[in-house]
Design a protein around this nucleic acid. Structure first.
Length: 487
RNA sequence: GAGCCGUUAGCUCAGCUUGGUAGAGCAACUGACUUUUAAUCAGUGGGUCACAGGUUCGAAUCCUGUACGGCUCACCA
């Protein structure tokens, strides 16, 4: 950490203090943003700018510095963009220029005030009349041309990544816009946003390994939620007919380009809707995002094209397998298990698992453009409503885009007796060797016994959605601080 | 968890094949320069070559192990 540049800057800091100048000054109030000035005056002719002769004050980090002896050009960056400043002896005086040259380094924050002019090359520039050092920086910034490339440093010191790689900032601005648009979309449809517990006594609502924690005063173990589902449905029971929650969810599983131990999902529930209604709703929502973010329903991701033109494909899992494997395989468990095994599926004698995982292995290109996959078997869908024509499957679908699961939704099971049996049958799966099953939640069953209106609900992985719309190859690119091992 | 690849100055990278006292650009420092914008010009300093062992007269370079990271696979959303 300690290098000559760090030492130089510390010396400057001490010298400033001995001069009675606070190197971490407070209270400077800029009246303008760089981006605002550029959009307002970027096209204004030079002579008109001169005749206006209005002063503006800006503040920001010094991100470029060119010293010409008796004058200095620099750029400062604020949240809106960059602005060039020009400092010359004629205007600020010799002492002030010397001070700047001696004490202002790349990376420092300064406030500047002056009128606007255009340089020979036409760049809008502040003719600095006065400036103030606001924050001294002790470390040099990453290299100006190549930025910060080292992936590990980018994640561990994300602030440096954000300073030196403008495209990273754009990714996170887009992330923020996407979440805002989703809120707007649901709010317009009379949904309310709610918050439910993150600390759960029973890790329910999904089949995943939870993080465990402990409450000292209550003397009880708790789990970080693996899904908000069961709490949101309790709210529907309570009469909140349209609810959604956007929030962090935690799963104690592997880390990859698609998985972070904590990730953001949205779940929403709508009374009197069916899973088919949610297909339409999700289609509409994601197309809105594509339109707002990409300006088109056809855009590039990972070097290939994604076409979101509606209507989206709807693929029945069973029919798809019957077509690719033959009807006889689906009608005979022994044949199905053997086929699944031969493809490398560890189905543990669970029919639903064999079907779903075999399906996933056998699909490819057809799941690149958005596709609703439906017809999920009952035993792998313990919270979903039974299909009225076929008791072996549920009214559930998953949305795939670019071969990735983006959303999972279903008509909710609201029969408490059936729900209890489904929980119990999850125990059978556990006995067959399935490690991750849905836990029995008696309290939730009691809630259902008080009556949940017919309802459909969905969960969407926000991080994956953001990846799609920012053309990011890894989930780590859309999460500010992805989990890494300690250095 | 397994396989492959990577780790050299504050940053971006050469050097490793074929072992012989560590290189460039940016950044820093000194100086010149009043419209530059990757400013330019002259000069200077800066390294536990990730870490630990081994081979060798001699290791950034070859070998082994460890740590961290990336990609692929497995579990999963």
């Amino acid at each position: 950490m300690d290098n000559d540049q760090f030492e130089h800057r510390k010396e400057k800091l001490n010298e400033l203090r001995s001069l009675g100048i606070n190197p971490f000054a407070n209270g400077y109030k800029p009246d303008t943003l760089a981006g605002g000035l550029i959009s307002k005056f970027g096209e204004t002719p030079a002579n008109e700018l001169e005749s206006r002769n209005e002063d503006y004050s800006l503040a920001g980090r010094v991100v470029g510095l060119r010293d010409f002896g008796k004058s200095i050009f620099f750029h400062i960056a604020d949240r809106s963009g960059k602005m060039q400043g020009y400092l010359k002896t004629d205007v600020v005086g010799e002492d002030s220029l010397k001070f700047f040259k001696k004490f202002v380094d790349l990376g420092d924050f300064i406030g500047i005030r002056g009128n606007l002019f255009k340089t020979r090359t036409g760049e809008l520039t502040v003719n600095v009349k006065e400036f103030k050092l606001l924050t001294k920086t002790l470390h040099p910034l990453p290299e100006k041309w190549h930025g910060l490339k080292d992936v590990e440093a980018r994640y561990r010191q994300r602030y440096l990544d954000l300073i030196s790689n403008p495209e990273i900032r754009e990714i996170f601005l887009t992330r923020s816009r996407i979440i805002k648009l989703i809120r707007m979309f649901l709010d317009q449809r009379d949904y309310i946003e709610v918050e439910t517990p993150i600390l759960h006594p029973i890790a329910g609502g999904a089949a995943a390994r939870p993080f465990e924690t402990h409450h000292n005063a209550l003397g009880m173990d708790l789990y970080l939620r693996i899904a908000p589902e069961l709490y949101l449905k309790r709210l529907v029971i309570g009469g909140l007919e349209r609810v959604y929650e956007i929030g962090r969810t935690f799963r104690n599983e592997g880390v990859s380009t698609q998985h972070n131990p904590e990730f953001t999902m949205i779940e929403f529930y709508q009374a009197y809707a069916t899973y088919e209604d949610l297909m339409d709703l999700i289609e509409e929502l994601i197309c809105l995002l594509a339109h707002e973010i990409k300006g088109s329903l056809v855009f590039e991701y990972g070097g290939s094209e994604i076409d979101m033109t509606r209507p989206w494909k709807r693929i029945n899992i069973i029919e798809h397998l019957e077509k690719t494997l033959g009807k006889e395989v689906l009608s005979d468990d022994a044949k199905l298990f053997e086929k699944a095994r031969s493809l490398g599926v560890d189905h543990k004698g669970i029919r639903g698992k064999a079907i779903v995982e075999t399906f996933e292995l056998l699909t490819g290109e057809e799941l690149r453009n958005p596709a609703f996959v439906y017809g999920f078997p009952l035993d792998v869908s313990p919270l979903a409503r039974k299909n009225e024509a076929d008791a072996d499957i549920t009214d559930r679908f998953e949305l795939y885009i670019f071969g990735r699961e983006i959303a999972n939704a279903f008509s909710e099971l609201n029969d408490p007796i059936d729900q209890k049996e489904r929980f119990l049958s999850q125990l059978d799966l556990k006995l067959k060797g399935e490690e991750e099953v849905h836990e029995m939640d008696e309290d939730f069953v009691t809630a259902l016994e008080h009556g949940m209106p017919p309802t459909a609900g969905a969960g969407i992985g926000i991080d994956r959605l953001v990846m799609l719309f920012t053309n990011s190859p890894s989930i780590r690119e859309v999460i500010f601080f992805p989990h890494l091992r300690p250095e």
